[in-house]
């Protein structure tokens, strides 16, 4: 009883201070300062239609490199925490019985369509809403669909590893090329085309394609690691 009272007291104090600070920020006022500069320079200098993509990849590109690293560390950490040595004669089981025919046929039809949608989203990241992260997550959802419907669907872990490593290396190499050419890290060194064209924006499109591949491969490997963990009936240890 005392514990509940103290928890409510803490929540009331935190809530009061948050409301006190946030109510002093007027809602909907036009106080854009740095955003005005980005909204001005993005269609005129960089020739990129999607301003959010230009900020994420070009103006604040270093933060995106950090985010990709955090995702990679999370996937590696998860795989290493869940590691378990196989005992003798233990098989990898996923489900007790197979799915029905409707689910199997339906996922076979949907699988290439979802991959096509994900590829469209990350290739056109600088023209319409979307980008590398969104497209990568959509492709991971497609492979999750196949992993749930079929018990024999296998994901080759070494191929996934190679795709992920090569995509990450491409990202860092593009940044270092900016350094070699005498400018800053992750500087835009390819010619920018016209607005609303597919080949516009210099290296922004190439970076987002690399990020899309990397996120898709990483999340597929993560879900496959989690799904293959044995059920607790096979876990009778300690």
């Amino acid at each position: 009883m005392m514990k509940r009272f103290f928890i409510f007291l803490i929540l009331a104090i935190v809530g009061y201070y948050i409301v006190d600070v946030v109510s002093q920020i007027p809602f909907g006022e036009n106080r854009v300062n740095v955003g005005d500069y980005y909204l001005d320079k993005s269609p005129s200098e960089l020739k990129v239609s999607n301003t959010v993509t230009a900020i994420v990849v070009n103006y604040r590109g270093f933060d995106t490199l950090g985010e990709v690293t955090v995702l990679f560390l999370a996937a590696t950490g998860l795989a290493s925490i869940m590691f378990r040595r196989k005992r003798k004669g233990e098989k990898d089981i996923r489900a007790k019985k197979a799915s029905s025919r409707i689910i199997q046929i339906g996922s076979q039809i949907l699988f290439p369509i979802i991959i096509l949608l994900g590829a469209y989203v990350f290739i056109h990241g600088h023209l319409s809403p979307g980008g590398g992260f969104q497209g990568g997550v959509i492709i991971a959802t497609a492979s999750l669909l196949m992993l749930i419907s079929y018990r024999k669907f296998k994901v080759n872990h070494s191929t996934i590893s190679w795709i992920e490593s090569i995509a990450g290396i491409v990202f860092v190499l593009l940044g270092v090329t900016g350094l070699i050419l005498g400018k800053t890290f992750l500087e835009n060194f390819l010619p920018t085309g016209e607005l609303n064209n597919l080949l516009s924006g210099g290296i922004i499109g190439i970076i987002y394609v690399a990020v899309g591949f990397k996120v898709a491969a990483e999340l597929t490997g993560l879900i496959d690691t989690l799904l293959l963990n044995n059920r607790p009936e096979a876990n009778k240890e300690k």
Binding site: N50, V52, T53, V121, P129, G130, G131, F133, Q134, V137, I138, A140, T141, L144, L219, I223, L226
Partner: peptide, 19 residues
Amino acid sequence: APDVALTEAAIGVALTTII
């Protein structure tokens, strides 16, 4: 904000629930 809506719908609904 269409970019953020896409990201939240893909990550928050599909991946978090399955994990």
